[in-house]
Design a protein around this nucleic acid. Sequence first.
RNA 1: GCGCCCGUAGCUCAAUUGGCUAGAGCGUCGGGCUUCGAACCCGAAGGUUGCAGGUUCGAGCCCUGCCGGGCGUACCA
Length: 746
Amino acid sequence: MRGRSIAGQANGRPWPEPQPAAGVSSSAEAAAAIDRAPTRLDDRPTMEPENFRALEQGLLTAAAAALGRNDPAGLRTSDAQSAEVGDLAIGFHGLAKTLRADPQALATRVAEAVQGDARFTDALAQNGYVNVRIARPLLWRAIAGELAREGASFGRDPALQPAKWLVEYSGPNTNKPLHIGHLRNTILGFAMSNVVRAHGHDVTRYNIVNDRGIHICKSMVALDRFAAGSSPETTGEKGDHLVGRLYSLFAKKATEEFAQWAAGPGAAEIEQYLATNRASIETGADLQLRKRFLQEQEQAGRKLEWKPAKMKPQQYPEKMAADAALERDYGAWLQAHADDVAAARRAEGLKRAQAAVARRFEAEVSQLHAQTRDWLRRWEANDPEIRALWRRMNDWVLAGIEKTYQRLGVSFDHVDYESDVYLAGKELVLELLQKGHARKLADGAIVFEQPGKAAGEAPQEKVLLRGDGTSVYITQDLGSLMRRYTRHRFAEVVYVVGSEQELHFELLFALIDRLVPGLGARCHHLSYGMVELPHGKMKSREGEIIEADGFLDTVEAAAAAQVRARSAELPAEEVRRRGERIGLAAVKYHLLKFSKRSTVKFDVDEALDMNGRTGPYCLYALARLRSILRKADAAGFATQLDLAADASRLAPAEAGLLLTVAKLPAAIAAGVRDLDPYHVADYVYGLAKQLNSWYTASGEDGKPLHPVINCADPATRGLRLSLLRLVEAALERALTLLGIGTLDEM
RNA sequence: GCGCCCGUAGCUCAAUUGGCUAGAGCGUCGGGCUUCGAACCCGAAGGUUGCAGGUUCGAGCCCUGCCGGGCGUACCA
């Protein structure tokens, strides 16, 4: 599993020509797909559309033909305005512009032509759109046929040119367990890789383990000095938790060491700092107090009014008077809070002094930090003793993290270790230098001039290689990216990394583009928002994190408690199993239901909530559906998909379900287009909701509108059972793409 | 300071990439279990899409300027 040596790997130049870009999605590709699709239904009326997409293309071609055009360029389908007016719509605003025509006139002409087409049963022209209803038998055969043919690969784009994709996600550190931030990354990345694969591409999943650097040395030193002999075997802890605890222990001991020093030999140094910086400290503290005062006032509805840009001159006197009053109150407030003022100044002074002195302390006084630095040097020098300890502790952590991946149900095809790749890239930087893309500073550092973003802004000098020849972050990423390219010749690569690293990836992609022209545009940063903790509600101190395993335990236990409450007779083991599934579904769906840019405010209560737009809701809809199928089976009814079912009996809600089933490929395509699995999460909920609504719908008399097992008419019952098979397949498929496992019973 | 992202219902978020009447969940109020699973369904109230201009047949989406928030701006990773 450990990555192979990369020695000599970077010698394969010159790099081969890049492959033609296999686009995420482009108009050219769409046009090519239209050309390829067998859509000339009007020429060959007996030909059946092989899938929903072909049906849409058939409609577009018919519309184009009605307007005297031989291809549907410039037209595309969208959702009908409502289910009452049709299944699909076409808007004519764009075409009207190029034709210098009235959109409504075009829509009317198309509506008239479509009326006479047996494939369509209704056409309504309104507001420059035509809303069309598709003949039910045709709709049924196209969609049911597509699912029957595609099976487990339902959702792919048959017109797609498959390409090689790499998706990198998770990126754990070996000094601590996974936390809630890793959880979003890992769930998002795994779902993304599934969605790209489902679209039809060849995907390789990558993980990158940050297993080297000063952080892991701290855990090692803590073990050495304060916990000698500890191991997962002796303490019974999960390896990642043990090492994480040692890392915290190091921080605690280092703080103690500093406090001791500050109270003794360092006291004079701190006092001196306080004396020299007194004025600045008092200003800083006072500013904070003023901010506090203004916040208090604002809550009471008062604030500084002086904003000349927004004021009319005649308002000036009034606003100035208001502000003056506020200032007077501030003076009084300060006097009333004299103790606070003194305390704030003391606290601010101490904070600054410690920050200022701590750096010197760490570098010159601290024994702990000295040992850590020494061990890092020995690690880099391949000291066998240090390497052995490092390897042992990394293995503890990785074994622990692997367990977390297993319970999450995520996996990788390749794992890179930074300890293997961190030296790669030096030669690439030298190559950039040779080719004139980078230059050398007086101290030997090699820098790249990243052009300024704003007009007139000076270019930023980015260091690619330090003066002493050592690598920085970008060096190793450049090396591993090139290594992956030479190995896989990928068409596209996706890095799932938080948005705070956008600049880094811009630089990385600009650099790789200099080495392999055109490659930069095929590298993507799936940049997602932060996971915020609700500070108010949870009293989470700064730096405190929610650790993944414990969090998952909490959610799964809460889900299990609900299962137990609902079905008391269930064996404990089954309660636990369902709790796991439901809890995981809740967490995963919560992390995927927002678009990627959105910051997720991780309210544990909200993630725990099983009602509303949640994972458990989706699981429930599917479990309910499966319950019907089970009972139908037991009653002796055929429940397999019947392509020849009489679709003319489809109720409106059922045609709607059928249409939604058919839109899974579009949701997947949108997910790939935006590099955001959120579209699939949105799809699942929409389908589940539609199913629940259909299920409970009743007529004026209060009787169920859509009985299945109790349906008196065998043909309708068969059709409904078939439809449920389709919905089941679509729900199962979409949830699986999100990495959410389903249940037969809840 | 500069750059990127964001600002939509009380709260949390969508909006088919510039198109039909801006939609969901939570919360609030009201209704629905003697028939296939109520972790459900139906209905109601709730919007000057931060503000001001501009482009367009058409703007939540594009442009400009403000206001407010987040992130970044390392020879850290």
